[in-house]
């Protein structure tokens, strides 16, 4: 039995599929964030020393998941931010307000192990099932 909340990476010829599940929609978005940064850097090397507020808007819940991942990719590339923990004060179909905790890239301590260009919209899904929430997104790596 998989844990109540988590993520797994799914092979895709050119890219990486990401399956996330959690009891709540917030949990799905948090797991997607964790999974993303696990592709960029070993999460065990990331300390939680600062917290950033992040706001994202999109046209519907699925696009919001893609936009959330894209925002985190942007934060990493533009500022070197590495996050491992996420909480949400607001999250509905079209917008979210999150607090992301982590630290900035320090090449002496962090080995960047992979890059992610963007979240694709291919087979993108976020839905509530009988056992909680599930999401799926293919990342272009």
């Amino acid at each position: 039995m998989p844990a109540k909340q988590g993520y797994e990476l799914v092979d895709h010829t050119a890219d990486v599929g990401l399956r996330v599940w959690a009891p709540t929609c917030e949990g799905v978005f948090a797991e997607a964030g964790k999974a993303l940064f696990s592709l960029i850097c070993d999460p065990r090397t990331i300390e939680q020393v600062e917290t950033v507020e992040i706001r994202v808007e999109a046209d519907d819940r699925e696009l919001l998941l893609a936009a959330w991942i894209d925002e985190l990719i942007y934060q990493f590339e533009a500022t070197g931010a590495l996050f491992t923990d996420f909480t949400f004060s607001e999250l509905d179909e079209t917008h979210l307000v999150a607090r992301a905790s982590g630290e900035h890239l320090d090449p002496a301590r962090h080995a960047v192990c992979g890059g992610v260009k963007a979240a694709t919209l291919c087979d993108l899904s976020v839905r509530e099932g009988p056992d909680g929430w599930e999401g799926f997104v293919i990342l272009d790596v």
Partner: peptide
């Protein structure tokens, strides 16, 4: 590089909407 990735991302979201 990131310039193109972000450009596609931004316009893809806008067109999907």
């Amino acid at each position: 590089r990131g310039f193109g990735h972000q450009t596609c991302t931004d316009h893809l979201q806008r067109m999907a909407a």
